[in-house]
Nucleic acid binder design. Structure first.
Lengths: 214, 214
DNA sequence: CCACCGTCTTGACGCATGTCAAGAGATTCC
DNA sequence: GGAATCTCTTGACATGCGTCAAGACGGTGG
C-alpha cells in the first residue's frame, strides 16, 4: 500500500529529500490549480494536469485530497511570510518605508493575484471545514506578525509609538488589501494606485498623534 | 418546459406574487444550507431538504443552480442593509453611538455567524466565478454605504469631520469584523468583547484629530 | 542477471451531483 | 363538472468526482 510506504519511507534511513520534494512539487501544482479555479472547483485530475504526473500519483504521496490541500497551504506560507522584510530592512526613513510598503502591497496584488484570492478563499473555507482551521489560523497569525514588523519599524523610524494592538493593525490593512484585490480581480487595475494612497493615509493613524496647537 | 412557463408567468397577467414568494422561500432554504455547508458543499438536494419541497422543484423556479444562488444573494442583501440604521437613528451622543454600534457588530456575529461566513465565502467565490461578481460588488457597495452612514453620523455627533474616504472606513472595519468572525467560528467567543474594544478604538481615529497642546 | 523496491500509470469502482423528462395532484376558469 | 393550466414529485440520465487496486517501468543491490 502506498500509505505504509509513505510512513515507512518517512521513518526510513534514506534521504527523505526526494519524497518530500515530490510532495512540494505536487503542492506547487495544487496551488496553481487552486489559484486558477478556487477551492470549490479544484479536482485532483486538474491538479495532475498542471503537473508532470497522472492523477493517481496523488494517493501515493498524500492520504487524500484534503491532505494535499493542507500541505499546499503550509507550503504556501513559506512564500509569503518574508514578503515585506526587505522593506523593513532597507528603509531608513518613515516616509521611505511608507512608500516602499505601499508599493510592495500593490505589487504583490499585480503579480500574485491568483495566490491571494486563493488565500481568502481558503480562509473562508476554514470557517466551514474544521480540518483547515488550525493551519489557516497559524498562517493568519504569521501574517499578522509580518505586518506588525512593518508597523513597529515604521513607528521606530518616525519616533512615535504605535497606538494599536497587532491584530487591529493587521485587520485594518488586511481589509483594505482584500478590498483592492477584489476590485483588481474584477478588472479595475487603477485600484492599485488607490490602495497605495489609502495605505499612506492609514498607517500614520496607527501612531500616537503628535501634539499640535490649535 | 418550466423555463417557458417561468417567462410566460413573469410576463403574464396574474399576480407574480406567489411565484416570487416561492422563489424567495427557496432562497431562504438555500441561504440556510449555504450558511451551514458553504458554497463548495452545498447541493440542490440538500437545499430541498431544508425546504418543504423536493429537489426537482428548483428547476421549476430557477434556470440552474447558480441562478438560485444569485437570487439568494440578492435576497440576502435586503436583510443586512438596514442592520445599523436604528443605531444611527437612536443615538444622541457620539459615545452613545460608538457603544451601540460596537455592541451591534458583536451581536450580529453572535446571532448570525453562519450568514456572515457565507457572505465572505461568496465574496471569495466571486473572484473565481464571474457570474457572481456583479451582485457581490453591488452588495459590497451597499455595505460600504451602510457603514458610511454610521461613521458620518458619528462625526456629526462628535462635531468633527471624517478624515477618511468611505471605502477606507469600510475596509478597515470589515477587516476587523472578519477577523472576529473567524475567531468566533473557531470557538473563541471571547473575541466579541475584543471586537467591541477595537471598534471603540478605531472609529475615533477616523475623525480629524482635535488640536492638543503638549 | 535476477530479485526487489520505490515510483508512477492505467483503468476501474461506487457514489453524488446537476439536470431534465414524464407524469401526478391541485387549482382555476369556463 | 370538465378542461386547461399551474405546481410539484418521482425517477432516471450522463457526467465527473475521490479513491484504490493492479500492474508496468526503472533503478539498485546482491
Amino acid at each position: 500500500m502506498a500509505t505504509s510506504k509513505n510512513t515507512a519511507r518517512r521513518g526510513g534511513v534514506r534521504p527523505v529529500d526526494k519524497f518530500d520534494a515530490r510532495r512540494d512539487q505536487l503542492a506547487e501544482s495544487a496551488l496553481k490549480t487552486l489559484g486558477d479555479l478556487g477551492y470549490a472547483r479544484t479536482t485532483l485530475r486538474e491538479i495532475a494536469n498542471n503537473s508532470t504526473f497522472s492523477h493517481g500519483v496523488v494517493h501515493y504521496y498524500f492520504q487524500d485530497k484534503l491532505a494535499l490541500v493542507i500541505h499546499s497551504v503550509r507550503y504556501y506560507k513559506a512564500r509569503c511570510v518574508t514578503r515585506y522584510d526587505s522593506v523593513v530592512a532597507d528603509s531608513t526613513t518613515a516616509d521611505g518605508l511608507l512608500d516602499a510598503f505601499a508599493d510592495k502591497l500593490a505589487e504583490t496584488i499585480r503579480e500574485e493575484a491568483p495566490m491571494h484570492r486563493l488565500w481568502y478563499d481558503l480562509r473562508a473555507q476554514s470557517m466551514f471545514e474544521e480540518q483547515l482551521r488550525a493551519d489557516v489560523t497559524m498562517i493568519d497569525k504569521t501574517l499578522e506578525e509580518m505586518i506588525w514588523r512593518v508597523v513597529t519599524r515604521y513607528a521606530q523610524l518616525d519616533g512615535r509609538p504605535v497606538s494599536l494592538e497587532p491584530p487591529v493593525a493587521y485587520g485594518m490593512l488586511d481589509g483594505l488589501f482584500q478590498q483592492a484585490l477584489l476590485a483588481y480581480v474584477g478588472g479595475n487595475t487603477a485600484v492599485l494606485d488607490i490602495l497605495v494612497a489609502q495605505v499612506r493615509t492609514v498607517l500614520p493613524l496607527m501612531l500616537t498623534p503628535v501634539a499640535t496647537t490649535g
